[in-house]
Write a protein that binds this DNA or RNA. Structure first.
Length: 651
RNA sequence: GCCCCUGUAGCUCAGUGGUAGAGCAACCGCCUUGUAAGCGGUAGGUCGUCAGUUCAAACCUGACCGGGGGCUCCA
């Protein structure tokens, strides 16, 4: 950090190194060409920093737009901000871009990058901007402040246009309404670290009522190596895709005959799921939960009472109308009723709470259910197990007194995190969603208290806490647990949500020690969110190689020749007695092939037996990682496998 | 719901208007084997569905049904 002399630019002060792409001047990110005075505080911002990288990508988006307008002069510009891992730019074009177009655009971009065009900032008046951008209808709408001040192109008090100036001729090649800042020239963007990824449609300013534009997604990095690392990461993510692994490992499928977003679990997936559920059940029992069951379908009146039909109807399957009785002349003899598939379990649980009078002595009352719910997701958003139309929540509703709330939330959060850790996730952060004053029920005081209680519970976990200001649902604040998986992606897992609305709507009450009737506090919580989704997350986290306790097949016995089949069947019987899921591969194949098959099925333990092992009363291990351990006595082998399962270790 | 892409054997994929192909998997044999594919054979598809164009459609057109990528929303 330095202070500079008069009549100089940020570039002069801190721009010596080409990794410096912009400067932070008195705390604000500005172009390096910005003049500074000796009272300004000027700091370099390098391309390695999040801000610097965003600038690099934003500038790359401009280069894309320039290339598009070269190739398609009729294309109208939308907006082009940096986003996670890259950037996009939206265009209004008569025909959508093809993959060939992308290849062509990339070539043009490289040419622009290599020509080292200077990004030159120019302040314009609104009238000038309107005149200059007469042929860019969307930009005009931005100037007219449609979309608000947070749009990338316009900001602050003044309008600016960035001109791209050719390094040699000094002529203006292109320009775009933009608040900047930008890298000094296109030479700062390594041509071999830029790639156009895909095209997609997007509504102008994200609003379905607006025009649909063609979006081009691209990525840009400080170096070729970083681009390559990113592409490798994408490949890795693709290999782990649960839809692909689900088919390969024969875990589940989505039969077209059943319908979009509705999965069936095959025997192998069924085992994993059962083990996940069994363990969760046990832990819930130990933690004082009581198990309930409720039907999948209910009369509409229940969802009128809960309010779901008011604010959630379009997320629900349409009703079926039952029990109406109409005579020949069309007179209604009996009024029918609409039945809905349930999109949530909470109304049912409230009915259980309300089934009889409740005492303060029963609280906290923790009702738990693996409740299968159905949501009519729009056809464009259904995606594998992570976004299905039918799924099973590990859903609990906790009814407690206001006084118990703090303690309960604290325990709950600890319980949730401990359980997630048992499934092998270890890297978490928490997100606290607070009140949106525009749409919420309940008094300021209860919101304040509940939010503060949640915050304290969160802070006690010593995890990073991110604030999601105004992100809560209308009925109460919430904490969500975000988990990072093995390749660093974050998934929203558990949510803990305080609800001020439903106890009111259902008129829930308990009788207090003084004989008065009080309204309980209600806490919704799902730990896995949905079992199917959690299944998918674990599948991707482990890349299909589940730890032994979850693996569908834990051990495969592989005979050297079929003379050893009987011996391995005996070993398998011993394992099975200890509860191990074991198979013996007696197919008419060579053992090398059986090893390959077991390896591809990601079985944790292979037990191989030939003459030597039989003679010694032993087996030989081949582990999933390819290591081997020969001549292990049967008892020791069984103990080792059982111990590995019981400790829930990964191997 | 909207836009683009896509649908050929259980899986991965060839096949651009003239009688449907490969590898793996499956099934049947042969081989009897020490840590990721032994050899041979057999069977398997109304080319997502329905309509249309054509002498002729897996191939061209349309609608519908799946799937993928986005927009929006969420677990």
């Amino acid at each position: 950090m330095r202070s500079g002399p008069v009549v100089t630019t940020a570039q002069d002060l801190v721009g010596g190194d080409r990794s410096v792409v912009v400067a932070r001047i008195n705390g604000e990110i500005k172009d390096l060409a910005t003049p500074v005075t000796d009272t300004d505080v000027v700091e370099p911002v390098t391309v390695d920093s999040p801000e610097g990288l965003a600038v690099l990508r934003h500038s790359t988006a401009h280069v894309l737009a320039q290339a598009v307008q070269e190739a398609f002069p009729e294309a109208k510009l939308g907006i082009g901000p940096p986003v996670k891992d890259g950037f996009y730019y939206d265009f209004d074009v008569a025909t959508p871009f093809t993959p060939e177009d992308l290849a062509e655009l990339e070539k043009r971009m490289v040419r622009i990058l290599k020509s080292r065009q200077r990004f030159a900032r120019r302040v314009v008046t609104e009238e000038d901007a309107v005149r200059e951008l007469a042929h860019e209808p969307y930009k005009l709408r931005l100037i007219g402040s449609e979309g608000g001040a947070d749009v990338m192109e316009v900001g602050g008090a003044e309008l600016t246009i960035y001109d791209n100036i050719d390094a040699k001729s000094g002529e203006r090649c292109w320009g775009d309404l933009c608040r900047g800042p930008h890298v000094p020239d296109t030479g700062y963007i390594p041509p071999n670290a830029v790639k156009l990824m895909r095209t997609a449609a997007a509504y102008w300013l994200g609003d379905q009522k607006n025009e649909q534009l063609q979006r081009v997604y691209g990525t840009a990095w400080p170096s070729k190596e970083e681009l390559r690392a990113y592409l490798t990461f994408l490949e890795e993510a693709e290999k782990r895709d649960h839809r692909k692994l689900g088919a390969e490992l024969d875990l589940f499928s989505f039969p077209e005959e059943i319908g979009s977003g509705l999965a069936v679990f095959h025997p192998k997936g069924g085992v994993v799921r059962r083990v996940m559920e069994d363990y969760s059940r046990r832990r819930h029992e130990e933690a004082g939960y009581e198990f309930v069951n409720s039907p999948h379908i209910t009369k509409g009146a229940l969802f009128e009472k809960s309010g779901h039909l008011d604010w959630y109807a379009e997320g629900m399957y349409p009703p079926m109308h039952l029990d109406a009785d109409i005579d020949e002349s069309g007179n209604v003899r009996r009024q029918g009723a609409d039945y809905y598939l349930k999109p949530m379990n909470c109304p049912m649980h409230n009915l259980i709470f309300d089934a009889r009078g409740r005492s303060y002595r029963e609280l906290p009352l923790r009702l738990f259910e693996f409740g299968t719910v159905y949501r009519y997701e729009k056809s464009g958003v259904v995606q594998g197990l992570t976004r299905a139309r039918g799924f099973t929540q590990d859903d609990a509703h906790i009814y407690c007194t206001k006084e118990q709330m703090a303690d309960e939330l604290d325990r709950l959060l600890t319980f949730v995190l401990d359980l997630l850790r048992d499934y092998g996730l270890s890297d978490f952060y928490l997100e606290l969603s607070t009140r949106d004053p525009e749409k919420s029920v309940g008094t300021d005081e209860v919101w304040e208290e509940a939010t503060e209680t949640l915050r304290q519970a969160a802070e006690r976990q010593n995890l990073e806490l991110v604030l999601d200001e105004g992100g809560a649902a209308f009925y109460g604040p919430k904490i969500s647990v975000q988990a990072k998986d093995a390749i660093g992606r974050t998934w929203q897992m558990s949510t803990i949500q305080v609800d001020f609305n439903l106890p009111e709507r259902f008129g829930l009450e308990y009788q207090a020690p003084d004989g008065s009737r009080q309204r309980p506090v209600m806490i919704h919580r799902a730990l896995f969110g949905s079992i199917e989704r959690f299944f998918a997350v674990l599948l991707e986290h482990y890349a299909g190689a589940f730890p032994p306790w979850l693996a569908p097949v834990q051990v495969v016995g592989i005979p050297i020749s079929d003379a050893h089949n009987a011996y391995l069947h005996e070993v398998a019987a011993r394992l099975r007695q200890r509860g191990v899921r074991v198979e013996v591969d007696t197919a008419d194949e060579r053992m090398q092939k059986k090893i390959r098959n077991a390896q591809r099925a990601k079985v944790p333990f292979m037990l191989i037996a030939g003459d030597d092992d039989v003679a010694a009363g032993a087996v030989s291990f081949r582990y999933r990682n390819g290591e081997q351990k020969n001549g292990v006595p049967i008892d020791a082998a069984v103990d080792e496998i059982v111990a590995s399962i019981e400790t829930r270790e990964q191997v």
